[in-house]
Each structure stands twice: as structure tokens, then as C-alpha cells.
């Protein structure tokens, strides 16, 4: 367990020292959403209608931005190989890196959401559900994304390939996240949506670090 937190702390410190990463992700998130009123026009009711979907899609893309470097730097400078040799299982290492990734991208996205909800004229009833679905959903995004980040280690093209691998797998999270917010706005019970999202998270929690560790072992073999 202490190994887990050591890696989380190390990654957070690295992110802090390199700086910018979290700010960039949030800035991308905000700018991507702000583009929509220019695209579809500033009518308040149209914006309100598409707000949940736009915010969720932008969050999805923003969460993917920094994924490419999740393992890449450690893979290139050899520290990933050292981590694999440690007594700590590689799965725990992967889980720690995912946690650090969520803390540096998922959490800042969550903090920026109220601002965007105002920009997009999101109805008040949907606001807390939006924050809640993002809180449950973004960890799933980091978890699923980690598999892709591990798979592309050592490949010829990184980022574009990663989005092709990961985005189709993000669709369920997106569907349930958006429909929960829309349900809340139209006054329906959203318990089922939230439970399914929690179920996805609980299923991803053991499976994704396992698959990611498998992919990293393969990358280190060669």
C-alpha cells in the first residue's frame, strides 16, 4: 500500500514540477465548450438543450489529452522497467498512475464544470447531477484510457492512435452520464443511471489495471 502512495506522490510532484498540464486540460475543456455557442448560435434554450452532452463530450476529449504521456515518459527513460522489477505488483503501479492521472485531470475538470454550466445555460435541476456523473465517470475514463496508454507504448504513432482505440470504449460512460443529467432536468429519477455508472466504475477498477499491466509487460518484453 505504501508503494502505491509513493508512486501517486511521485507522479503528482512530477506533474506539479512540469506544471501546466492540469491548466492546459482545463483550458482545453473550457475553450472546447465555449466554441459551441459560436457554432450553434447563442439562443438560451438550444444551449440548455445540448449543454449536458457538450460538457460531457468536451470532458471526454480533455481527459484524453494527457493520457498519451501517462506511461510514455516513464517507458522512455526506463523508470517503468524499474517499477516493474519492484516487489510492488505492476497492477498496483498502474493503479497508482491512474489515480495520479485522475487527480491531475479528472478533478480539475470537475472544478471547472460550474463555470461551464453557467456558460451553457444548464438548467439548475441538472447541475448537481452533472457534477455527480462527472465525479463517477471521469475515474472510469482514466481507468479505460490507461489500457490504451499502455497499449501504444513503443508504437510509431501515439496520440491519434490512442483516440481511435479509446473513444469507442468511452461511449457507454458518455451515454449514461448525459442521460442522467437529461433525466434530472426533465424531473425523472436518475438512480438507475447513477447505479449503472457506479457499476461500470466498479467493474473497471480491477479489470483496467490488470489489462494495463499486461500491456506494459508486453511492451517491456521487447
Amino acid at each position: 500500500m505504501s508503494g502505491f502512495w509513493t508512486i501517486v506522490r511521485r507522479d503528482l510532484k512530477l506533474a506539479q514540477r512540469q506544471g501546466m498540464d492540469s491548466y492546459m486540460v482545463v483550458a482545453f475543456f473550457v475553450i472546447a465548450v465555449v466554441l459551441f455557442p459560436f457554432g450553434v448560435g447563442p439562443e438560451a434554450n438550444i444551449l440548455a438543450r445540448i449543454s449536458s452532452g457538450v460538457i460531457w463530450v468536451a470532458a471526454l476529449l480533455a481527459a484524453m489529452l494527457s493520457l498519451e504521456r501517462l506511461f510514455q515518459i516513464d517507458f522512455e527513460d526506463g523508470s517503468l522497467e524499474l517499477m516493474a522489477l519492484q516487489p510492488v505488483p505492476l497492477e498496483v503501479v498502474v493503479m497508482a498512475k491512474i489515480t495520479a492521472h485522475w487527480l491531475t485531470t479528472g478533478l480539475p475538470l470537475l472544478v471547472a464544470t460550474p463555470l461551464l454550466a453557467v456558460f451553457m445555460n444548464l438548467p439548475y435541476e441538472g447541475f448537481w447531477v452533472l457534477v455527480l456523473t462527472l465525479a463517477i465517470g471521469t475515474p472510469s475514463l482514466s481507468l479505460i484510457g490507461a489500457i490504451g496508454a499502455a497499449l501504444i507504448l513503443g508504437s510509431r504513432r501515439g496520440g491519434v492512435l490512442l483516440s481511435l482505440l479509446i473513444l469507442p470504449l468511452y461511449i457507454p460512460v458518455l451515454i449514461f452520464g448525459v442521460s442522467a443529467v437529461d433525466g434530472a432536468i426533465s424531473g425523472l429519477s436518475v438512480k438507475a443511471h447513477l447505479l449503472i455508472m457506479a457499476g461500470l466504475l466498479v467493474a473497471a477498477l480491477p479489470l483496467c489495471p490488470w489489462a494495463g499491466a499486461g500491456a506494459i509487460r508486453q511492451a517491456l518484453e521487447t
Binding site: 489500457i147 497499449l151 501504444i152 508504437s155 482505440l165 470504449l169 489489462a211 499486461g214 500491456a215 508486453q218 511492451a219
Partner: peptide
């Protein structure tokens, strides 16, 4: 690598 992706 693709085999892992296929299983996922």
C-alpha cells in the same frame, strides 16, 4: 498489443 485490445 492488438490481442489485448481485442479482448478489452
Amino acid at each position: 498489443a492488438a490481442a489485448i485490445l481485442a479482448l478489452v
